[in-house]
Amino acid sequence: MRLILAAALATMPLAAIAQDDDPIHQAIEARHGFYQMLAINMGMLAGMAKGDVAYDEAAASRAAANIEALTHYDLPSLFIEGSAHGQAEDSAAKPDIWNNLDEFRAKFAGLQEAATGASEAVKGGAANVGPVVQKLGGACKACHDNFREKS
């Protein structure tokens, strides 16, 4: 067992081990995880709004509640110095974020505002999902337009 572990470790590039301890790398990974969670729940709501996914009140409300909860995480705190596009690998964060931190925070507050009450608002029928998705999507766009590198 130990031998296998040692062999496995030996094949891991040293750089990868070092990267795991790097706070910048960790912050970027955490950001991606955050967006992935947003995406899964947004994807479900958007699917229901478009009719690609059958409307399910409980599932819609749960997805919206997840998004509400996510927006209460202090996402901007993950945008640490040195984690901009061009400074760190796999980052789509425009360096402009760090010149306009207040505006960046305001964009995230905009998402939180758009998400407030979403878990109730999506109840009562598929027709109620569309407006919520539009509000949330508008908040996504507002930040992407200014602060997301268009790869």
């Binding site: 995406a39 958007a46 999507g137 508008g138 996504c140 766009k141 992407h144 997301r148 268009k150 790869s151």
Partner: peptide, 24 residues
């Protein structure tokens, strides 16, 4: 553009890397 409201109608027929690059 990853905003769930302005996705091009043919975005799903290309790879995720391509549809992200297309925004640029």
């Amino acid at each position: 553009p990853d905003d769930y409201i302005n996705v091009g109608p043919l975005a799903s027929s290309v790879s995720s890397a391509t549809r992200a690059k297309a925004v640029g």
